[in-house]
Computed example of a mutant assay.
Amino acid sequence: MSYKIVFTDLDDTLLNDKREVSLIDKLAIIEAQKQGIIFVLASGRPTFAMYDLAKELELDKYGGYLLSFNGSIITECKTGKNIFEATLTSDDLHILYEYSKKFNTHIITYHQDDIISETQSKYIDVEVELTRMNHKIVDSFKKEVNYPAVKCMLLEEPQYLKQVEKQLKDIFNDKYTIAISKPFFLEVTKKGIDKGIALQKLASILNINIEDTIAIGDSFNDLPMLKNAGMSIAVENAKDEIKNMCKFITKSNNDSGMAHMINTLILKK
């Protein structure tokens, strides 16, 4: 099989536990790009929070892409232009805010370079640290958020958040795409928008057959991408449900799993 494009999750997949790309992974990605492989960073992260990593991996030089906000935006690294964007309306965000209050969770959304919330929590602090975005705490979420946004997140203790996920899906499964990424992040995007749909859309734009695509991930928000790719790959540290449905298990995120996959399936070293 001659693969042409790789879609990779970031946190706990490409990034190690220090939230860095190992030098071994970086060199393998650059070598694969030199051989004509397109690389796509696919994350729940905001676009802004992915630029530095894309630059480090030379995606702008070799024609890579970003799938940010779980596939709500597709960005061409060479030009910085968004070639696809899907948003929640302000009404959607207000509805989700009301349910966050009902379920007693924190809620955030994004505007330009800011993370917006009414509250402070250790879980919001994780997102601020991951994205390096400014945290804007407002008096009224509904008054502040009078614009569309690509995503919002409900945040709370992991076991409780699983219960919230089930209840939200029971209510809104026909209206929104709802998935847990990190155990304390419950992500909500427009219905029909996820990493898998974005994979299909970009492959179609680039005229690449699905059979020639690779996706690699570790968590539940990666499932649509893994299901839609020609070759589905889990890192060794992935959740068991993810590993059980993938065709190939590579090494862990702390053991240069990306390089192992590239050397085995692409460069065939």
Rank of each mutant, 00 (worst) to 15 (best):
D125A: 15
V150S: 09
I137D: 10
E31H: 11
D17M: 05
T13E: 05
H106S: 15
I108S: 07
L168R: 00
C246R: 05
N70E: 10
I116C: 01
C77Q: 13
I249E: 08
I116Q: 02
K142E: 12
K18L: 05
D17K: 11
S2L: 13
Q112G: 08
E144A: 03
I193K: 01
D92T: 12
P148W: 13
T75M: 05
I137R: 11
I115M: 08
D240P: 00
L265A: 04
F185Y: 03
N173L: 00
N146G: 15
I210P: 14
K101M: 06
K61F: 05
I116H: 00
K247D: 12
I262G: 13
G44C: 02
D125P: 06
I137N: 13
N244M: 12
K190G: 03
V164I: 03
M245P: 05
P224Q: 13
P46F: 10
K18Y: 04
L206C: 10
A42N: 05
S117C: 05
L14T: 13
I216S: 06
F141H: 01
Q35D: 08
L66W: 01
I180Q: 03
E31S: 12
D255S: 13
Y62W: 05
I124Y: 00
N173R: 00
L93Y: 02
Q167F: 11
I108A: 11
